[in-house]
Design a protein around this nucleic acid. Structure first.
Lengths: 207, 207
DNA sequence: CCTATTATATACCGACCGTTATGGAACAGG
DNA sequence: CCTGTTCCATAACGGTCGGTATATAATAGG
């Protein structure tokens, strides 16, 4: 009691040390979930990709669902970070364009799986995956709210015409984003997606 | 050989007559696939909804995949028929609006499951479902081609400005459609979807 | 009535699912 | 060395998956 354990920062590991890197394993799991969705990714798929056995996975991450939520955290943090940068663009037009081109980079790239992990997982509705779906929908709603606020500000700044409905415009932009990820997942080429964005930008309201 | 069997129109059924209506059973199966996707719909889900046993299902439809393709045929025929009507609208703007409002009616209604059956099934990617995905993608591409041709014609008729890319515009419209079905599946209200469409129409190019 | 044919009902198949019990291996402190 | 703790590896658990073998019921034609 009086030994004054000052929360040893990297606390002394007592037992046998684990033989894999948790972060790297999580990154591999993310890749599998992204490519196959929550239901489509089996424990065997996951453990093989992560290079660990099932008991190790359960000890380190809890269970499949907990692993998914952690993977989704990583996904948002690494891959959807461009959304925060987009909000800081100087004009509403640039916000939109940043969003759309960012979506092409992330969801239409060649290194990662095609399509959007959130979208894929929010549509696969096995009964047990309801909480997964709810999680994705909740995250989407909160980021959408930020976008509405950004467009409200843009209207106040005369950045987009006053008659435009900020909430409607956000829904439109989100629909375009979702369409991009759907088409990317269906095999659309980089050029086709850029054509989509180019045309979208010609439609965007001018101040 | 000489009995001159003139292809008895409703040929004489020889054995025990089936006790269910194939069309009605297929309609029930469509409902299940629509709500749960290909992978999410189990044979038990299907047989219970259809009111028949598994051997009857296999005798009448082949297997799960064949049943799905027939359900998808029915879906396109009944629910996506508005797409053909849309193409016949007099102006490109009305074509687009017909498409978008039709999508709200079909995918945001209260009688049928929310969301688009094709989209749901094209994203659930179990290994065996690759042919499902390919089928959906193929059907989508062919309907998209018709839309491009319609917009080419609209350009020729001065219906949309000459500088607009018909193919890009088609991709944009399709992205909006896909976004509508995604948001409908995620629980968006009818009013929110209409707001999305209203705003989309304010962005649509004027001749 | 008998046979052939087709549909139904039950029970079952092997494979895979997510999850866990079991036993041994690798470390720290005594 | 011994004990306690933590991790790895194997194998197994009950359950569900899509698909079927088997036996029985219902019709048509002879």
């Amino acid at each position: 009691m009086e030994q004054d354990v000052i929360a040893t920062p990297a606390s002394a590991p007592k037992g046998r040390p684990r033989e894999f890197c948790v972060d790297q394993a999580l990154a591999e799991a993310l890749h599998v979930f992204w490519a196959k969705g929550y239901d489509g990714a089996s424990m065997t798929d996951l453990t093989e990709a992560m290079g660990i056995t099932k008991p190790s996975l359960y000890a380190a991450f809890g269970n499949k669902e907990a692993l998914f939520h952690k993977a989704l955290d990583l996904y948002e943090q690494e891959k959807l970070e461009y959304g925060r940068a987009a909000l800081e663009q100087p004009t509403a037009r640039k916000v939109a364009e940043y969003y759309l081109r960012g979506a092409i980079d992330v969801h239409g790239g060649t290194d990662d799986p095609k399509g959007c992990m959130g979208l894929i997982s929010s549509l696969a509705c096995s009964p047990e995956a309801e909480s997964i779906k709810a999680d994705v929908v909740r995250r989407r709603a909160s980021s959408q709210r930020l976008l509405v606020e950004r467009f409200e500000r843009a209207k106040a700044e005369g950045d987009i015409p006053a008659h435009v409905d900020a909430e409607g415009l956000t829904s439109v932009l989100y629909a375009l984003l979702q369409g991009i990820t759907v088409q990317a997942g269906a095999g659309a080429t980089h050029a086709e997606l850029e054509r989509l964005v180019d045309t979208s930008m010609t439609l965007w309201p001018s101040p």
